[in-house]
């Protein structure tokens, strides 16, 4: 009987050890509900830019991100998106994908300043489709480019007042680009998807 108890204890210990040593399930940043999130811009992002070239991009942000409002930081306006804000940018294979065509890649910004991999307070992630593997970028390629969002740049309202925009090119209410068209911007998109952006 004693031997059985010892064996059981050993087995439980081994299982607990195996569980403690097992790799943790990776966090999924691109939530399955992300297609229901509102877009951050009405601009049709089908023009070529470094990094994505002329492939269509559609950025969406969770509701938490839309609560961000600019605050005065001296003479400068400052945007600080709340922690757990997630922006998912769909990247399509071409500038004008066919109706119903799925994106080939998702690039994700997840606000998580406590994560040691965070750069500028954000995790920079790519999710290759269709295999669905998410990879956190440890290089500085993404942030180097997105740092331009915090100064004058050629996109949206061009940030002429050089607001600190927390590395986000298209912040709510600062969109003066071309409106999205049903045929080109997003297959099956509707105007209501633009979260509060007129």
């Amino acid at each position: 009987m004693k031997r059985n108890r010892k064996g059981l204890a050993l087995a439980i210990g081994a299982v607990l050890l195996a569980l403690s040593c097992a790799p943790k399930a990776p966090e999924v940043y691109a939530s399955p509900e992300y297609p229901t999130w509102a877009r951050t811009t009405r601009t049709v992002l089908d023009y070529p830019i470094p990094g994505h070239m002329n492939r269509l991009r559609i950025p969406r942000m969770n509701a938490l991100g839309f609560t961000a409002t600019p605050l005065a930081d001296g003479d400068r306006q400052r945007w600080d998106f709340p922690e757990d804000t997630v922006i998912v940018k769909e990247v399509y294979a071409s500038a004008k994908p066919a109706a119903g065509e799925r994106p080939v890649q998702l690039t994700i910004m997840a606000k998580d300043p406590k994560d040691p991999r965070a750069q500028g307070g954000w995790l920079w992630i790519t999710k290759d489709l269709p295999d669905g593997k998410e990879t956190v970028f440890t290089g500085n390629f993404c942030i180097t480019c997105h740092a331009n969002a915090n100064e004058k740049h050629p996109y949206a309202d061009k940030n002429l007042k050089e607001e600190f925009r927390d590395y986000v090119f298209f912040v709510p209410g600062r969109d003066n680009g071309r409106p999205a068209s049903a045929s080109g911007a997003s297959p099956g998109a509707t105007a209501s998807e633009y979260g509060g952006v007129p």
């Binding site: 070529p48 470094p50 990094g51 070239m53 390629f141 331009n148 004058k152 740049h153 996109y155």
Partner: peptide
């Protein structure tokens, strides 16, 4: 060290390349 074609650089250098 890659020299990236930043958005602000695209005005002169164009947007058709990343690096």
């Amino acid at each position: 060290r890659p020299l990236i074609n930043l958005p602000k650089c695209t005005v002169c250098h164009g947007s058709d390349h990343t690096v």
